[in-house]
Design a protein around this nucleic acid. Structure first.
Length: 617
RNA sequence: GCCGUUGUAGCUCAGUGGUAGAGCACCUCCAUGGUAAGGAGGGGGUCUCGGGUUCAAAUCCCGACAACGGCUCCA
């Protein structure tokens, strides 16, 4: 993030990577080093220790050694070598990974693999310059190929901690050897380090997998399969409410709901271009007659056929289809994670078919919906303009010229909305077109990619989608893909953690919990009346009939993060008034001792309708 | 898919070679309770699954599956 770009902090983190590598070299002579760059909040170093597997238990030893090196206050000395001398050095030092990098540098002036490597080595990434000379840094007995910068000496290192070790492929390629990547964090002060560790702890507390279990929102079953979440009644209410919100807004903007089957012939994906790229991620079905089908991994081909089902006039455009529907992708098991990455996910999908001249309007409509949706849910949004990478054109459909012109058009829309304050996502485009990706910043400062609007000039070709213009000629239609939540599952994972399971009243699966003090007939009757009236208003209410103390029931309601709890006893029966207990995070504007049941219920109904998370109760 | 770690009751976890435990949850009874845990009793586990070693395996070994931390991937 930004802070790691601060020159001082960056240099310190980079120096910590070297200090760690020095420590590991001292402790495990013969270690072969990969690369050790700066990352958000810290650094890592890739090491090849042969058969020795590092574990958390080794961190203490390494950290102790690092502290020693810091105490020794070794100066960081920069020097250079001719490329051939450098290669000889790597060979002699028994550093084959470094040697490989150096050979690449010599040959082509770049390490190609990924930008990370090049950046780490401080080289031009365009591959034009051959390297004649490379820089090294030495601290104490440790020398490393490196462009720097570094701090003056190891004594300048401040607060750090090793976090974890994991596998990482040499140069990020899964066909390469796997090394051990040791992650550390580094800060200028102990206080910042403590704050960071506290944030990690907070994130753990908010983990949607933990909350999903505690709040009874969704489950996984080993019998059903990995990556296939099952939503409980409570979780399903969340999904429904969120989707209703999106779809209400879409209706305002002229979208029409459609409905499609979940499987299709293979031919649809050949026409769309998906078969080529994603065949191995499809769940395939062969019918008893030998025809090949696939479970849908996306909805565009189906929607194109609705469009193509009759001839379209320019007067019909734009045509906007919306549908919330589940897609299935055969993700690798190692990539699955809670609701963030699943094999069955539900998209709040939409496809707009329009003329080029209508693109701007349509993008802005999506943008409006995105702003309203994420604004209501309390996220701060940023925008990424995701374009093709000219260096890897074979990953995309369509010509370079077409890509450039479409991106130009989309970029002018982005600029009209946010000026220059967008993130350039080169190489982040879909294979069929550029995207505007919306990134949401959550309550503890993490950003997630959420909504997306994608221009597609390839599938209209593949499916031959046209309309008839004013002159009676057929013209190619433009297609836009737009999802607000993206995948509801993934969105929920972000949102649950954003609010830490404390859903606003309009979303809370259970909005009101009634806690009868005893089993008296009058109390029972009163309770039943409250429930009946609440249901008439469409409120979600439950009664806790357990034979437990009031205190315990309050606690249970609190743990389930129910917004309102009503204790009903003799007092309420006699007065007809209730004193709602309001969940602590809900902002209370004007507090009242007691309200009639009717007043209370109407207030909650209004809060639900207006989708606010504050109350006048 | 790859590397590593883990897998004991619905949940959180203890148990390291001699045939399984706690707290919470659940059920029953008592208590008729007033805003974050009232009391007593009870039920519940092929110790993920399949092989192996051993007189004996939750415990040791191998394999599969699953979860977790990363890597790779993400229409």
């Amino acid at each position: 993030m930004l802070e790691s770009k601060q020159p001082g902090l960056y240099a310190m983190r980079h120096s910590l990577a070297h200090i760690m590598a020095s420590a590991i070299t001292r402790l495990y002579p013969g270690v072969k080093l990969g690369v050790g760059p700066v990352i958000d909040n810290g650094f890592y170093y890739d090491v090849d220790l042969g058969d020795k597997q590092l574990s958390d238990a080794d961190f203490e030893k390494i950290e102790a050694e690092m502290r020693k090196i810091v105490a020794e206050n070794q100066p960081f000395e920069r020097f250079t070598k001719r490329i051939n001398e450098a290669i000889a050095w790597a060979d002699e030092a028994g550093q084959p990974y470094k040697e490989e990098l150096l050979h690449d540098l010599k040959r082509s002036g770049t390490t190609i693999a990924s930008e990370l490597d090049s950046e780490e080595l401080g080289l031009p990434t365009d591959g034009t310059n051959k390297v004649e000379e490379v820089s090294f840094y030495r601290n104490g007995e440790f020398t490393d190929l490196c462009r720097g910068p570094h701090v003056e000496s190891t004594g300048a290192a401040r607060a750090f901690k090793l976090m974890r070790v994991s596998g990482a492929y040499w140069r990020g390629k899964d066909s390469n050897a796997q090394m051990q990547r040791v992650y550390g964090v580094g800060f200028t002060t102990e206080k910042e380090l403590r704050q960071y560790l506290a944030m990690i702890e907070e994130a753990k507390q908010r983990d949607h997998r933990k909350l999903g279990q505690e709040l009874d929102l969704f489950v996984f079953s080993e019998l059903i399969g990995p990556g296939l979440p099952l939503f409980t009644p409570r979780g399903t209410i969340l999904r429904r409410q969120l989707d209703n919100f999106v779809q209400e807004m879409r209706d305002e903007y002229g979208y029409q709901e459609v409905s499609i089957p979940h499987i299709t012939k293979k031919d649809a994906y050949i026409a769309s271009g998906h078969w080529d790229k994603f065949e191995h991620e499809l769940f395939k079905i062969t019918t008893r007659e030998g025809h090949e089908f696939a479970v849908k991994p996306m909805n565009c081909p189906h929607h194109t056929q609705l469009y193509a089902s009759r001839s379209r006039s320019y007067k019909d455009l734009p045509i906007r289809y919306r549908e919330t529907t589940t897609c299935y992708r055969d993700e690798q098991t190692g990539e699955l994670s809670g609701l963030s990455r699943v094999r069955a996910f539900t998209q709040d999908d939409a496809h707009v078919f329009c003329r080029t001249s209508q693109v701007e309007d349509e993008v802005l409509k999506v943008w409006d919906i995105v702003d309203r949706f994420y604004g209501t849910l309390g996220f701060e949004l940023s925008v990424r303009f995701s374009t093709h990478d000219p260096k890897t054109m074979d990953a995309y459909s369509g010509s370079e010229e077409k890509w450039q012109s479409v991106e130009e058009q989309l970029l002018s829309i982005v600029k009209s909305k946010v000026g220059e304050s967008y993130i350039a996502g080169v190489g982040e485009a879909a294979f069929y077109g550029p995207k505007i990706d919306f990134m949401a910043k959550d309550a503890i400062g993490r950003t997630w990619q959420v909504a997306t609007a994608q221009l597609d000039f390839n599938q209209p070709e593949g499916f031959d989608l046209t309309y008839v213009n004013e002159e009676g000629e057929r013209e190619r239609v433009v297609m836009m893909h737009a999802a607000i939540m993206g995948s509801i599952e993934r969105f929920l994972s972000v949102y649950i953690e954003h609010v830490a399971g404390r859903f606003p009243v309009w979303l809370a699966p259970e909005q009101i919990r009634i806690i009868p003090v005893n089993q008296d007939e009058a109390v029972k009757q009163f309770t039943k009346d409250v429930v009946a009236n609440a249901k008439k208003l469409g409120l979600r209410v439950a009664i806790d009939y357990d034979n437990e103390s009031v205190g315990k029931k309050i606690r249970a309601a609190e743990l389930m993060k129910v917004p309102y709890a009503l204790v009903i006893g003799q007092k309420e029966v006699e007065s007809g008034e209730v004193v709602p207990r309001v969940r602590k995070d809900i902002e209370v504007s004007e507090e009242h001792e007691a309200r009639t049941v009717e007043e209370f219920l109407n207030t909650v109904a209004n809060e639900t309708k207006s989708r606010v998370n504050k109350t006048s109760l």
